[in-house]
Amino acid sequence: MKRNGVFSRVCMILTLIFMYAPIFVLIVFSFNASKSRTVWTGFSLHWYADLFHDTRILGSVATTLEVSVLAMVISTVLGTLAAIGFFSMRRRSRAVVMAINNIPMTNADIITGVSLMMLFVFAFGAFNATLGKALGVTLKTGFGTLLLAHITFDVPYVILSVMPKLNQLDPHLYEAALDLGAQPSYAFRKVVLPELMPGILSGAMLAFTMSVDDFVISYFTAGSGASTLAMEIYAMTRKRISPEINALSTLVFVIVLVVLIVVNVHSVRQERARQKRDLAWKRADG
């Protein structure tokens, strides 16, 4: 195929500028001496110092990480089991459960959020009026409902990542393991699970990313009991966002950038090593 000309390169760079202009502004103003977000008044690191004393922001970061990690672990287990279960079903029932599985992914976030909010309000209302009254327990929305909501929108992504691996799986491998005397559970752990692992891991990563990134569904399901970073930022946008948040985002940006660079350099190295090995094999054959 032809290589790109000057025009296409210029367009790509313009798009890049469009994508990064606000991020650049954000990072620059995290070092601003004053609170202004349009006027530069001098270099300072004090927003970074303030950030580490702001218990409200740090608390919301902790909540975000807690809910994301818990939702990732639970939805990975639930989703992997479900993928195997769905895969074992007959074609027609599989189509039905997969269609329901797709609902949270195709629905707009706000609809998922609002519908779960109604479920919690409805169910908790009914419980508190009857059984809760008798036992003296009052259920409220908060971290628990936030976690339930996150698991609900994470699992479909896990299933979607694991399913293709199940389709690629050679069923004879598992049978061979059984023929060679392995217990079903042992054969599953030693033969099937390693084959599924890449799908499970990318599903887990996807679930974690979705949870960290989510604002809309959290906003409707957490109530006033818990607050994620995104909810905290949204609450601030109504008045004025503290540059501490700019400082926090700059830190996140740098961390993610470093991780992405390390991962990519690592995989480039691996690829090169593989190419070299293949070349060596070819030479040996020739």
Partner: peptide, 16 residues
Amino acid sequence: LPMWMNFLLRTYAWMS
């Protein structure tokens, strides 16, 4: 990379 920064924040930066 930008997707890892909260979208509310990036949108807020457009306000500036």
